[in-house]
């Protein structure tokens, strides 16, 4: 179905993928998140899971309750009524994240620096400079998915993913950055660790930030890392 701002295509027999075609990436990101929220809050019969990301939203359905064609028509109508200029949140919160950067060469910081033609210190400076917007929550465990730091080149994913990446690791890949709230396998380059505890299963939803909130990284010493270990991640 033609639509000026979004292309909707099947992703198997139980899911549709809607990808923004807006030239303005910020507007495209807002649009797919508004779409996800609308579908979520409308409790559309047959819709099981909604996964908004950077420029796309995946909508998983029970094909016995709704057809992909009917859902596609419905989504096209919904999109026409959405305002891509409306902010996701009126009062974004900012989270300060202390990071013990990998200057001892235990992780991948030096490899990333070499590939970018920069020093490790420059990578740290570029990574801790921006105020990042939480684009979406991703794998594993509600990771805050961010835009990448202003490196000259995209960061390639590791040729062989690590079977175990510990929680609290700060990583980059492509033009993206994140913090890992829970241990899992992963193919991103690891450039530091935060002592903060991000995941708290006693609260719902168990991570403190939402899409539209902000994150700032700050370089800390090993002593500070030890002193802050296990502190919960809270907004300013």
């Amino acid at each position: 179905m033609p639509n000026a701002s979004v292309v909707i295509s099947p992703s198997g027999n139980s899911a549709l993928r809607a990808v923004s075609t807006l030239a303005d990436r910020e507007a495209g990101w807002r649009l797919v998140h508004h779409l996800a929220r609308f579908v979520d809050s409308s409790h559309v019969p047959g819709v099981e899971c909604v996964i908004p990301t950077y420029d796309a939203v995946l909508i998983e359905i029970d094909p016995t309750d709704v057809s992909l064609d009917a859902l596609r028509t419905y989504l096209a109508h919904v999109i026409e009524g959405l305002d891509a200029d409306l902010p996701l949140t009126d009062a974004p919160r900012t989270f300060d994240v202390p990071v013990l950067y990998d200057l001892d060469g235990e992780l991948d910081l030096q490899d990333v620096a070499d590939a970018q033609g920069l020093s490790a210190a420059e990578i740290v400076r570029l990574h801790s400079e921006p105020t990042y917007i939480v684009r979406c929550l991703g794998a594993p465990g509600g990771s805050p998915m961010l835009d990448g730091p202003p490196f000259p080149h995209p960061v390639p994913r590791l040729a062989s993913p690590r079977p175990h990446v510990p929680q609290g690791v700060v990583s980059v890949a492509g033009r993206q950055a994140t913090i890992t709230p829970a241990a899992a396998p992963g193919g991103w380059s690891l450039i530091g660790r935060t002592p903060l505890t991000v995941l708290d299963l006693e609260t719902e939803p168990f991570v403190p930030y939402e899409p539209g909130d902000r994150i700032r990284f700050r370089s800390i010493s090993r002593d500070e890392y030890e002193a802050l270990r296990g502190t919960r991640m809270v907004a300013r």
């Binding site: 139980s14 993928r17 998915m145 040729a159 062989s160 492509g174």
Partner: peptide, 18 residues
């Protein structure tokens, strides 16, 4: 080229490195 992270459906068939 590098792909931006997106939602992956249950049942996705992928060819990872290896």
């Amino acid at each position: 080229g590098e792909v931006l992270s997106r939602g992956v459906p249950v049942g996705a068939v992928e060819v990872p490195p290896g």
